[in-house]
C-alpha cells in the first residue's frame, strides 16, 4: 500500500506527463514557416522612396517615409470550420527598411490554406497596455504622446501641390476610440482563387500587393492640394484608413526558393 504522499506524487507526475504531451502537440502545430512579403506599387511600378510619381489626379509627389502596423497575421484555412491560431503580436512594416517588409510566419504543415488574414493597426486592447517593447516601442516614432495611441499608418513626402511649408504632405493615421477607429480586419485571397499547402520541405512565398493609387483615389478622394496633412484621430483619419485598406489588392502565391 503506497503512502498517500507517494500517491499524491504519482498523480503529480501523471499530470506532468499530460502537460508534456499536450505541450508537444502544441509545438507540433507550428512546424513550418510561411514567408509573407509586402510589396507596394505606384501606377504598377514598385515603390521607391524619394522617387517622383504621379497620383491618379495628376499630382506629382515623392514619398519619403512609409510605415504601417500589421498584426495578428495568420493564414486562412480553406475549410471554414477550422480557425487559425492567431498570434497576438504586431509588425511595423517600414519601406525604408526592406527587412521589415518580409515576415516569416510559423504555420502548420500539411493543411490547405487559401488566404491570409491580418489586422491593420493596433486595436484598443493593445493601445492601453502602458510601456511596450518590440514593434510597439514608442521609440519607433509611431506613438502620439499627448493623446496616447499608436499611429497606425505614417506616410510622409513632398509634392509641389502641397500648400504646407516646404511643400510637405504628412498623413499620420491613427485613432481607436468611438467612431474614429482606424483599425481594420483584413482577409485576402489569391487573385485566382488558388489554395496552397505548406509542407516542411516545400516552402511558399506569399506576396501581398499594395496599389498606392487607391490611397488617393479611394472612397474618399485625397487630393494633396486639398488635404496635405492629417495628424490626429478623427473623421479624416478614419476615411484615409478606409482608402488605405483598399490598397491591398490581393495575394500572389509562389514557391519560396
Amino acid at each position: 500500500m503506497p503512502s498517500p504522499m507517494l500517491q499524491r506524487l504519482k498523480g503529480f507526475s501523471y499530470s506532468l506527463i499530460l502537460l508534456f504531451v499536450l505541450g508537444s502537440f502544441q509545438k507540433k502545430e507550428m512546424d513550418s514557416t510561411l514567408s509573407i512579403q509586402f510589396r507596394a506599387y505606384v501606377h504598377g511600378v514598385p515603390l521607391e522612396l524619394n522617387k517622383k510619381y504621379q497620383n491618379p489626379f495628376g499630382e506629382t509627389f515623392e514619398i519619403t517615409r512609409f510605415r504601417f502596423y500589421a498584426g495578428k497575421l495568420a493564414p486562412v484555412y480553406t475549410n471554414a470550420n477550422f480557425k487559425s491560431k492567431i498570434p497576438s503580436h504586431y509588425h511595423l512594416i517600414d519601406f525604408s527598411d526592406s527587412a521589415t517588409t518580409r515576415i516569416e510566419l510559423p504555420v502548420t504543415a500539411g493543411i490547405i490554406y487559401n488566404g491570409i488574414q491580418f489586422q491593420m493597426g493596433i486595436d484598443s486592447a493593445d493601445q492601453n497596455r502602458g510601456a511596450q517593447s518590440g514593434a510597439l516601442d514608442p521609440a519607433k516614432g509611431m506613438f502620439w504622446t499627448w493623446n496616447s495611441g499608436y499611429i497606425n499608418i505614417k506616410m510622409e513626402g513632398n509634392s509641389p501641390f502641397s500648400t504646407q511649408p516646404a511643400h510637405i504632405f504628412e498623413y499620420h493615421i491613427g485613432g481607436y476610440r468611438n467612431n474614429y477607429n482606424t483599425v481594420w480586419q483584413i482577409k485576402l485571397y489569391s487573385t485566382n482563387d488558388q489554395s496552397f499547402m505548406i509542407s516542411k520541405e516545400k516552402k511558399i512565398l506569399i506576396e501581398i500587393g499594395m496599389d498606392l493609387d487607391y490611397l488617393f483615389d479611394g472612397p474618399t478622394p485625397i487630393h494633396i492640394r486639398e488635404i496635405p496633412s492629417c495628424m490626429k484621430p478623427g473623421e479624416l483619419a478614419r476615411k484615409i484608413s478606409e482608402n488605405f485598406i483598399g490598397t491591398f489588392t490581393g495575394l500572389t502565391i509562389s514557391p519560396n526558393p
Binding site: 492601453n128 502602458g130 504622446t145 499627448w146 493623446n147 496616447s148
Partner: peptide, 14 residues
C-alpha cells in the same frame, strides 16, 4: 489624453 501612467512621461519628454 494619456491613457496609462507608464506612457505619461513621453508627453513632456518629447
Amino acid at each position: 489624453g494619456i491613457n496609462h501612467i507608464e506612457v505619461q512621461p513621453l508627453a513632456p519628454l518629447l
